[in-house]
Nucleic acid binder design. Sequence first.
DNA 1: TTACTAAATTACAATAATTATAAATTAGTA
DNA 2: TACTAATTTATAATTATTGTAATTTAGTAA
Lengths: 139, 139
Amino acid sequence: MTIQKLKELGLKLTPQRLAILNLLEGNMNHPSAEEIYNQLKPQYPSLSLATVYNTLEILAGAGELQEVRIKSDKRHFDPNSAPHGHFLCRSCESIYDLDSGAYEIKAPFNVNGYQVEECTLYFYGICPKCQAAAKNNGN
Amino acid sequence: MTIQKLKELGLKLTPQRLAILNLLEGNMNHPSAEEIYNQLKPQYPSLSLATVYNTLEILAGAGELQEVRIKSDKRHFDPNSAPHGHFLCRSCESIYDLDSGAYEIKAPFNVNGYQVEECTLYFYGICPKCQAAAKNNGN
DNA sequence: TTACTAAATTACAATAATTATAAATTAGTA
DNA sequence: TACTAATTTATAATTATTGTAATTTAGTAA
């Protein structure tokens, strides 16, 4: 997720790409393409949603970020490309990283002849914040 | 996934619902709504895609079947509602059940304060058939 | 600096899965 | 047999994403 990586991939360093990279760098919010677009639009009025999708597609294809399909309607993106689980809070709808040694699965491996190259792990439940909020409202 | 279950849920036993139930019973193919629709259409020419979606929605909501979101474009449905992993072959695009004790995760549980009620496990790779086919073609 | 060119961006149209709507039909019951 | 709420149906609407074709631009080399 660095400028250097873009160069290595033979990609042009356009302002749009740099802006998207910059927004994603260290971002833990798992934004969707549209959220990225909306956040950058004020600073880059000419920015097109297609460019956002295009850039995300390239970066995901290069393994620089991962798609998170934990929500039914739209895709979300995570600049942390290392394998880790994701958690969707059913109350606030936020997506969190959930990196737990106890529930870690390391690909590649082979089960019953199925050659597993990759795997995704999605958890659904209630996040700590919403649990606390529920308690304060009298359980 | 039985007629009895429909009754228990207070649902009317319409021919459409019975046909969908019957098609899903023991089905290991993880069909999409459209596939179900296309398979039943010849026998039930008046069948509407909306009815298929509606029925699947009800059954999934009642925990009688599970949605499989392993493919990017569309949802698939599995009449086996017991927790188990799914495998998508990147070659033939088939979806398989992948029930492996070694990679089983039992919800509910709590990690770092996150209350996990449910989880899904998706595996991606090459299925045994396609591995064999690749070998026969001279690796 | 300037000119060149392939790559990238943009606006917009198109696609496709799913959902909503409202009228017509029907399963279950009295 | 008639009734009514539930269901089905056809169709329109929605919405995320992708395709397209014209315009712009980053990077390079004269």
